[in-house]
Amino acid sequence: MRLRLTAGMVKDEAIDRVETLSGQSILACYQCGRCSAGCPVVEEMDIIPSEVIRLLQLGQIDEVLSSKTIWTCASCLQCASRCPKGVEFSSICDALRAIVLRIRLATPKVDADGLTKVMMSDAPQMGVVGALRKLNG
């Protein structure tokens, strides 16, 4: 399949949002790949960090939002410390996760009201908070 590029895709609203939320310039990246080369968890990612940015440059945000990569990033900042263009990939990941979570907010996965007292007392407190935060946004 050919990817039909259009002006609207390159200056997509969603990409703008990523830039606003992350404070990073997507077009500043010149694809040297240093972020991917140094990432300690890159093996666990389905799309490597530099390619995530490239896909954003090409307006392919949906593909990025459904990737495993944005949840794998541990925000260790290895990438940001070495980026020659000052792009913080971890901040971009933060923004992408926030976007996903806000989409999910509309459709909560955990029914907070339906949690029983037994569940509340047995489950670790952090687990409950994490489940609500990550799955319900």
């Binding site: 399949m1 050919r2 990817l3 039909r4 590029l5 259009t6 694809q31 530099s50 390619e51 490239r54 896909l55 090409l58 392919q60």
Partner: peptide, 10 residues
């Protein structure tokens, strides 16, 4: 786009 491996059409 050899960076992403996508065929491009404009």
């Amino acid at each position: 786009d050899t960076l992403s491996g996508r065929k491009i059409e404009i």
